[in-house]
Design a binder for these strands. Structure first.
Lengths: 351, 351
DNA sequence: TTTTTTTACGCAATCGTTCCCGGTAACGTT
DNA sequence: AACGTTACCGGGAACGATTGCGTAAAAAAA
């Protein structure tokens, strides 16, 4: 089954010209007479000629496609980011090839090999929770593959990066909980080695410290699969609930973790926010429809995708090797809803 | 900036062989001596040779990539479908190139042209709400491009299709509402011309008829952008509320419409399900965490993606033109939660 | 020993496109 | 008249890989 396309040869033959002339006419070269150009252009239009991108790729040694690896696309933050990536890429004539690591280092590596062997011109990636070994990325950058990291980045590799101010996001969220009367604030964090985990944890701790609340390692839980597996969130919440001095609030570190915590708390009939407040990073637009409506830190996902792609295209299209890299840090947004506001406080506020 | 790869020529030169010999050795041809094979294979391994897929594509006149067009990926149903598509595609060495129509016919066409000009081997698509003109698809199938439709399909084009039993899904949902005591059941449907709209509407009407409830055109609302624009959902709900004999339940026809209706109802402080019940097609896994937990018809999205891709690969890899097409119809699942069960009934049931 | 067969490899065309070289008119300069 | 310009166009070699065909040497058969 296929789907024969018109080539430059067909035009040449039909018009009694050489392929070189046709090619030049189509590219509007000065050495082709206006009449010939017109002839070629009109005929090409008529038979619906489109240059074969594969032949072009071979000739120009570039595929005009970029690879994207995220842990999963069925996740609001990432699907919104991909929207941003796509919009810029398509406007510049690039394909986007998407792959999912599903939080597995092995799959990430497989995808990486698959994409590079399919000769992508560049890569945009947010690491999997399992990724601790960056040697493959180092090798790729050394071999000259343009890479832009976003969200879950890696310090050791010198290239463009796009993130939000995770520290501030976490700091704000935690401060918000504190100022709403919560004191024993636990956190359900992502895998320990992730950049976002470290930064968000630092923000959380700093907020506690600034409010003279002792920070307490026993209130920190890590989810090594980033909440992909609900049972690990359940374990985390359960173990928090077993502490003698139970926490009265949870700060969750990612989309999946935030909704995961809510799911577990509800299944255990623990009232949010009265028994346990909940704040987390999340980008779904269903947050306000949840029971209770969730207070979240929202990331400008679409914009992050746009910026990452713009940076990547700069790298790809740069004539000489780029050595001056930047890390764009965007602001996140704290959206306060009911999951972090005690009902008695609300009553007080109304009075 | 690029990223030079090892070619077959490099191997040939290094080993003092011709490229043909190297090629054959790599493909394990019988006309190459075991020693030479070993030599080539080991050297290729050593310098990390990978065949250039672009050169192969040019030679074999296939790109080993398939295009996917959906209205948007930040939508649970579609992102789950894409997961299914990806899993099959990658296992078979195919790339997946994703494009979004955002419910616009114009964008759909643009994407279509972009993808075909990038020589995809096949296409999987769910139509935009605006699409009423199928001539372009007809032309593509006639020119031999393998296409598989899913979800929003089109009758007039003879090819493989994958859907759920929309009639039964809608019938079950409506019947469920009726048996729970609702009588004036409105529906907020998708764009009128969509296959899913027609089928779901038919199921809805059949359920009413079977329960001897007069079907009433004034209780039907269409959203031409499939709920992409919240205001159209708002208009639909508002106009339903203005009817003298207000409906007591809404059956919503898609993910975005279902959550959109809930959003509007809540903003108007209309209690669900007591003042107004709500049931709809939806695939988010947040449904049970909503207020109230939503009764939904869930589609086996991942499986749909898998099946669509399997069918597409069959078409692509078939030696002779396929003329025998099938439409796979999968079962949907009605998941009953609180948005469709009156509280008094619940109390009664408990008693 | 001669002929035939087998083995093992190279040449060159091919896929669609671009682009470096040439080449040939026509025209203008001296 | 001889030469230089300019305008216009074609030949053919890439890009990386596969593959039909041809063929030398070695092995087998006569």
């Amino acid at each position: 089954m296929k789907f024969e396309a018109v080539t430059i040869k067909d035009i040449a033959k039909a018009l009694g010209l050489s392929t070189s002339t046709v090619s030049r006419a189509l590219r509007d070269s000065y050495e082709i007479s206006p009449e010939t150009k017109k002839l070629v252009l009109e005929y090409a239009e008529k038979i619906n000629y489109h240059p074969n991108p594969i032949a072009l790729s071979l000739k120009e040694r570039r595929s005009r496609s970029i690879g994207v690896i995220v842990c999963e696309i069925a996740n609001s933050f990432f699907s919104q980011t991909i929207n941003g990536i796509e919009s810029i890429a398509y406007n510049n004539g690039y394909n986007v090839i998407i792959a999912q690591s599903r939080e597995s280092f092995e799959r990430e590596l497989m995808n990486l090999q698959f994409l590079t062997s399919r000769s992508i011109d560049g890569l945009i990636i947010s690491l999997s929770t399992e990724t601790e070994d960056f040697s493959y990325f180092k090798e790729l950058t050394q071999r000259g593959l343009p890479i832009v990291f976003f969200d879950r980045i890696v310090d050791e590799i010198n290239t463009h990066k796009v993130i939000v101010d995770n520290f501030k996001g976490a700091y704000d969220a935690t401060s918000h909980l504190i100022s709403n009367g919560y004191r024993r604030i636990a956190t359900v964090a992502n895998a320990e080695f992730l950049s976002i985990t470290k930064e968000r944890l630092a923000g959380y701790k700093a907020a506690l410290k600034d409010h003279r609340i002792p920070d307490n390692e026993s209130l920190i839980r890590y989810c090594h699969h980033g909440g992909m597996i609900l049972s690990e969130v359940e374990d985390a919440v359960n173990s928090l609930l077993k502490i003698k001095q139970k926490p009265d609030a949870i700060f969750a570190s990612s989309d999946k973790l935030t909704t995961g915590c809510l799911r577990i708390l509800k299944s255990k009939k623990i009232s949010v926010p009265d028994e346990m407040a909940l704040v987390g990073f999340s980008n779904t637009d269903l947050n306000e429809l949840l029971e209770p409506p969730l207070t979240v830190i929202r990331q400008p996902a679409f914009e992050m995708g746009e910026i990452a792609t713009t940076l990547l295209l700069q790298l790809i299209e740069s004539k000489r090797p780029v050595t001056d890299f930047e890390t764009k840090v965007l602001a996140s947004q704290l959206i306060i809803r009911q999951s972090s506001v005690k009902k008695k406080m609300k009553a007080k506020a109304l009075a």
